[in-house]
Structure formats: structure tokens, C-alpha cells
Design a protein around this nucleic acid. Structure first.
Length: 683
DNA sequence: ATAGGGTTAG
């Protein structure tokens, strides 16, 4: 997997001309001589600048110059352009000031003002202005209606929507394509899909947007299969899907079947002119379907095709880097963000924090976080869970308090991050306190995730009985996560009775999940009940359940290397095993005794030690030791929980080879340093 | 002088 960024892009942004042209324009505005002309500047002169989307400070300067000249101040064309420019900068109140100063307002001014509100999500203001427009006797036209329909769909206000629908007929605008599309979208958005479909079927002309609006309607309302069906139907009608179709489909292709992903991938491949949005959506689809490798590959293809990534692309691809712990790739993208000045951008900065956190780089995550001008609850939550996953529970809690001090109100996900931070650090009382805070003070109804955190917290701290009682008094049906947390606790504290209850539920909920059979068998093994171990093993065999192979990733020079247990497929295998042997000798000198309880007892006793020693994380660590300079931290990502033996081994290896080893397993991070793990052996 | 749908984070 090769990953790189195409280094040179020439245009500033799709809105602007070339950067050279921009510079010329800006400097010509700045030069005083132009504005000290003997003759007054013309409407055309300023109009041209306004058409170039000046940045906000240039716009304000320009505006103040315009106000100097009586003939320009009252010029309707410049008024509209100024309004449009301020609205584009998210300044609807300035737009409104300009609007209010215009004396003879015709329909165009109302249209522009309504659109400014709608584009800044002020749907209520848009509707109010629409009413005042009617009061002033200004008749809405084919520009007004699509916009006001958007205000209705944006606020899901079907009551007004129906009234608008009635006026459309009276105004004779019902055959207008834009109006029809607006109606289809409105009904779809409000989950009135039959009505959406009826409007579509009655339209005189339909275009791709009409169809996309129906697709969006189904997709937004969870009717995913129907959304895909509509795509097929439109293709049969000879309408080619476009980027909008893909974007509308996105909700329908999240955590979905690989068949659905392939369907959209095919649609994407067939698209003759793929725009930026198409690439962005296809990347997002891969990311949302746990296909990070495909996402990164597509991202590279996108660059190879000369399509310049924007902030949305970056915010979509960064989670994939985090998933893969592809730190080098993540850093490159960060450099690109800096180079392209894509910040400040909340989405993007939050994604950066999270990427670094998922790659185990707490300091980089913190640096990105500290560098943000604005932060929302998601920003804080990313950082809190970063500390939590790294076993720095008190830091996580301190950050939570700071977030509250900053005036932000925690939401349910913020509480998940806090509770799980408590659980990872064994902060039992704190966890209880925050659960109470959430329910009593913030009046939140706990979600299943919160219950799972609490069960985990209690169970890890050894309060297995209480954890079980907690489950029994839950108002909702416990899920896999909840029972799984309990079973893990039962294994740690050798609680056979409750362990059997938990396992029983898990075997019914997710009979194909090998991990829970392994946990149960470990409980039996620890109690020396070998007959029961055999029973579990044969149960797995009869149900055809195979243990998910453990697999570890390590990134080296832009490339992610993957190891399975006992893997010989890597080109450097010989070297790796030889070095492993040398290190094993040193480990034994340091007192290493294989922790054979961690082995699934599906192998003969004498083989257990041999199986443990070739666990994937050990191979990955040795590979990294061979291929990187002394002092380079080693980062491993594993698809399962790290086993007790590998945990001991990694501690010793960090000491013997004088390396920081950072392992991300499915649950948390382990930072091994000088023979000690950050988890304090509590995991 | 103005227009519709769709993409981004915990």
C-alpha cells in the first residue's frame, strides 16, 4: 500500500481564479492611487471585485469605499452583490442591514435575502421574511419558491410546506423544474415518501436532481433498500447518476453489505466525469464500511487523477488513517492541511486530533487540540477518550471539567468517553459519580453504551456481583457489549457462576463470535476443569466456529505490514524468527515464563508455548526492532485484545531492546516503556 | 442583479 500526496496544486480554490489573478486584484484594491482617482469609480469597477468572492476583510474595505459614493450606495446591482458576498461569509445580519437600507425593494432583493438566511440555516427568519414579502405585496417568483421550500425542508416544516404547495399552483409555478424538485425533496425529507413520489411522477420534466431528491428521501429515512432501488430505476429511465446521487445514497451505504458498497463503487466507476464530491463520497463510503485500506487507496487514486482534496476529503480520510494506525500517512495529510491552509475548520481539526489519538500519539493529539481556535463537544470528547484509552483517567477527568468550565454542555457521547476513561483507569468511585451526574444533574437517559461502561467499570474493579446486579436492573435489554464486559470480568476474577450466565447470553446473542468461547474456556482452564475446556472446544468445532486469527499491523516507511500468528509469508520472516529466538533467550534470562493460560486450549499442552511465542504482535514488534533505528518508538495495532503472555513479553522487550512499544488493541492503548506498561497491568 | 439536491468529526 503506497500512500503519497501529489505535491503541487496551482489553483487557490474552485471559487477563485488563479492565485496570481487574486494577488493582482487584491493589491490593486490596496493601492491608494486607484481610489484617489479624479473621476469616481464606476459600478462596474466594484462589481467586478465583488464577483471574485473577496475575503471578509477585503469585503469590508470595499463596502466602506462603496458607501462613500452616493451613486454607488444606492446602486441596486451593487447592493445585491454585497448582500451575496456577506451571506457567503456567514454574515446574514450584515446582509440584512444592507437589505433594510434599500428603499424600493423588488422581488430580487427579497430572494437574495431569503437565500442568505436559508444558506446560513436561519430557516425561521427566511419564512418570516417570506411572509413580510407577501404583506408588502411583492409576488414570489420561480426564484423565491425553491428557496423557501428549502427553508421548509431545512426546518422540516411541512405545515408551511403544504401552504407553499398550494400557492405554487395558484402562482402557476407548478411546471417549473426547480420548484418541483424542491417539493420532492421537502416531502422526502419529512418522510412523506408517497407524496414525494407522486410529485415526481406528475412533473412535466424531470432531471437527475429530481431523482436524487427521491433517493435522499428514502436514504434519510432509513429505507436503504428502496433508496438503492430508485437508483436502479432512474438508470433504467436513462438518467445517469451523478455525484449528487452518490451523496444522497451515503446514509444508505453506511454499515451495509459489501454488495451495496460494490453497487455504489460500480456507479462511481461508470461516472465519466468524477467531480470532487464523487471522490469524497466514495471515500466516505469505504470509511463508513470499515474498509480503510480501500479508502486510502482511493484517496491515492484521487490524487493521481489530479483531483485536489478539500477539507471534506481530509476529514473523511483521516479516520481511515486512524483505523490503520497509519501515522506517516496521517502526518503527511496534516502537512497538506497546513500547506493548503485548510484550518481553521472544526470538522477537520477534530479529525486530526482523533487520528493522532488513534495512532497512539497523545502528545500530537494534544498539540492539535491546543492549537484550535474553537472547540466543540466533539473536540473535547476526542481528547478525553484519547487520555482514557491510554490509561490517563485523571487527565481525562480534568479535561472534562475544563470543557464544562468553557461553557460547553456535555452530551451523551462525552459521558461515554468519561465513563470509559474511569473504567480503563480503575476509577470506580469517579465512574459512579459521573454516571449519577449524567442521570441526575444532566437528566440524560443512559444509553446502552453507558451501561456497558458501568458494567465494565464495576467488573474490572472486581465488583462482579454488583456488575451483574447492575445488568439485572437495566431498563433495556443488555446487548453483546454489556454481557461481554461481564464475561471478561469473570475471567479476570475467576467467577465461574456469573461467567456461565454471561456466556449463555452471549452464545445466544452472537453464537458465531469465537472470542466468547475462548473466554469461557479460559475461565475453565484457570479452575483446572479440563473436561469443561474440552466441551467448549468441541462445541466450537460442532458449530464450525474458528477463532478469529490474531493479526497485528505495523507501519514502516509509508507501508503497513501485517502479521498473523506463526506467519511465514513476510519476505523478512527468516530474519524475524532468528531475532525472536535471540530475544527470547534474553527474555528468559530476565525471568520470562510463558503465560500458557492465555493459549486457547485447542492445541496439545507441549505446543502451547510454541504457539504463544509466534503471536502476531511479537512478530510485528521484532520486525520493527530489526527495521528501525534504536530509539524509534514502535507502534502496533492489533485486531484482538492483547493476551497476557504478549503483555508480559512486550514489557520485557521494551526493556531489553530499549524501545517504547505502543500497542493498540481493540480496547485501549498499552505504552510499554522500560519494562512497565501504562495500563499498570489493569486491562 | 437571483435559483434546486448531495459530502466532513467524538
Amino acid at each position: 500500500m503506497r500512500v503519497g500526496i501529489v505535491p503541487h496544486y496551482t489553483s487557490l480554490s474552485r471559487h477563485f481564479g488563479t492565485s496570481k489573478q487574486m494577488e493582482n486584484l487584491i493589491s490593486s484594491i490596496r493601492k491608494p492611487n486607484l481610489l484617489q482617482l479624479n473621476t469616481a469609480p464606476t459600478e462596474d469597477f466594484f462589481g467586478r471585485f465583488l464577483d471574485r468572492y473577496p475575503d471578509i476583510s477585503e469585503l469590508k474595505k470595499l463596502h466602506s469605499k462603496i458607501l462613500v459614493y452616493e451613486h454607488l450606495r444606492t446602486n441596486p446591482s451593487l447592493g445585491v452583490k454585497l448582500m451575496r458576498a456577506y451571506a457567503a461569509h456567514g454574515e446574514p445580519s450584515i446582509t440584512r442591514q444592507i437589505f433594510d437600507e434599500i428603499r424600493d425593494k423588488n422581488v430580487v432583493f427579497f430572494n437574495v435575502m431569503i437565500r442568505s438566511y436559508v444558506n446560513n440555516n436561519l430557516h425561521q427568519d427566511a419564512l418570516l421574511l417570506y411572509i413580510s414579502m407577501l404583506v408588502h405585496g411583492v409576488e414570489p417568483d420561480n426564484y423565491t419558491i425553491p428557496c423557501i421550500l428549502k427553508a421548509c425542508s431545512g426546518s422540516e416544516n411541512l405545515r408551511v410546506g403544504w401552504q407553499i404547495h398550494a400557492s405554487i399552483v395558484k402562482l402557476g409555478l407548478d411546471s417549473n423544474l426547480f420548484v418541483g424538485n424542491g417539493l420532492v425533496f421537502l416531502y422526502g425529507k419529512c418522510n412523506y415518501l408517497v407524496d414525494a413520489r407522486r410529485v415526481l411522477d406528475r412533473m412535466h420534466h424531470r432531471d437527475v436532481v429530481s431523482w436524487n431528491s427521491v433517493v435522499a428521501g428514502y436514504a434519510q429515512n432509513g429505507r436503504f433498500d428502496e433508496a438503492l432501488e430508485v437508483c436502479k430505476e432512474m438508470e433504467l429511465q436513462g438518467v445517469k447518476p451523478d455525484a449528487g446521487t452518490m451523496a444522497s445514497l451515503l446514509p444508505a451505504v453506511t454499515h451495509t453489505s459489501s454488495a451495496n458498497v460494490s453497487f455504489v463503487a460500480e456507479m462511481f466507476n461508470q461516472m465519466p466525469k468524477k467531480g470532487l464530491v464523487s471522490w469524497n463520497v466514495m471515500i466516505a463510503i469505504y470509511v463508513n464500511n470499515s474498509m480503510p485500506v480501500e479508502a486510502v487507496e482511493l484517496f491515492c487514486q484521487m490524487e493521481a487523477n489530479g483531483v485536489e482534496p478539500d477539507a471534506v476529503t481530509i476529514a473523511s480520510i483521516l479516520p481511515a488513517c486512524g483505523d490503520l494506525s497509519a501515522l506517516m500517512q496521517g502526518r503527511k495529510i496534516h502537512e497538506y492541511v497546513v500547506q493548503k491552509r485548510l484550518c481553521p475548520n472544526l470538522f477537520l481539526e477534530n479529525a486530526l486530533v482523533d487520528m493522532y489519538a488513534k495512532c497512539g500519539c497523545l502528545q500530537d493529539a494534544r498539540q492539535a487540540f491546543d492549537g484550535m481556535q474553537r472547540r466543540d463537544v466533539a473536540s473535547w470528547t476526542s481528547m478525553i477518550s484519547a487520555y482514557g484509552m491510554n490509561g490517563q483517567g485523571l487527565h481525562a477527568l480534568a479535561l472534562f471539567s475544563k470543557m464544562q468550565d468553557s461553557g460547553l454542555v456535555p452530551d451523551p457521547i462525552a459521558f461515554v468517553s468519561v465513563l470509559s476513561a474511569c473504567s480503563h483507569s480503575g476509577l470506580l468511585d469517579k465512574g459512579r459519580y459521573y454516571f449519577k451526574l449524567m442521570t441526575d444533574q444532566y437528566r440524560m437517559v443512559p444509553r446502552i453504551e453507558h451501561y456497558a461502561c458501568m458494567v465494565d467499570l464495576l467488573g474490572r474493579a472486581g465488583h462482579v456481583d454488583e456488575a451483574y446486579s447492575f445488568i439485572k436492573q437495566m431498563p433495556t435489554e443488555p446487548n453483546e457489549r454489556v454481557w461481554g464486559a461481564l464475561l471478561s470480568a469473570c475471567r479476570v476474577y475467576s467467577n465461574m457462576t456469573i461467567g456461565l450466565v454471561a456466556a449463555d447470553h452471549l452464545f445466544q446473542l452472537v453464537p458465531e463470535q469465537a472470542g466468547y468461547y475462548v473466554l469461557l474456556s479460559n475461565i475453565y482452564a484457570k479452575a483446572g476443569r479440563w473436561n469443561d475446556v474440552t466441551t467448549v472446544r468441541s462445541l466450537m468445532k460442532s458449530r464450525g466456529i474458528k477463532k478469529l486469527p490474531g493479526c497485528s499491523n505495523v507501519e514502516l516507511d509509508d507501508q503497513v505490514h501485517t502479521f498473523l500468528a506463526g506467519d511465514f509469508s513476510h519476505p523478512q520472516s527468516k530474519e524475524i524468527y532468528a531475532e525472536l529466538d535471540v530475544l527470547l533467550g534474553k527474555m528468559k534470562e530476565a525471568g520470562y515464563v510463558p503465560e500458557t493460560d492465555s493459549a486457547l486450549h485447542d492445541v496439545e499442552e507441549e505446543d502451547k508455548e510454541g504457539h504463544l511465542i509466534v503471536h502476531s504482535e511479537k512478530l510485528a514488534i521484532v520486525f520493527a526492532i530489526i527495521n528501525t533505528k534504536l530509539g524509534t518508538p514502535i507502534r502496533i495495532t492489533k485486531n484482538l485484545r492483547v493476551c497476557a503472555d504478549c503483555h508480559i513479553a512486550a514489557k520485557l522487550l521494551s526493556e531489553i531492546s530499549e524501545r517504547d512499544i505502543i500497542v493498540r488493541d481493540t480496547n485501549r492503548f498499552h505504552h510499554f516503556q522500560s519494562g512497565i506498561c501504562s495500563c499498570g497491568d489493569y486491562w
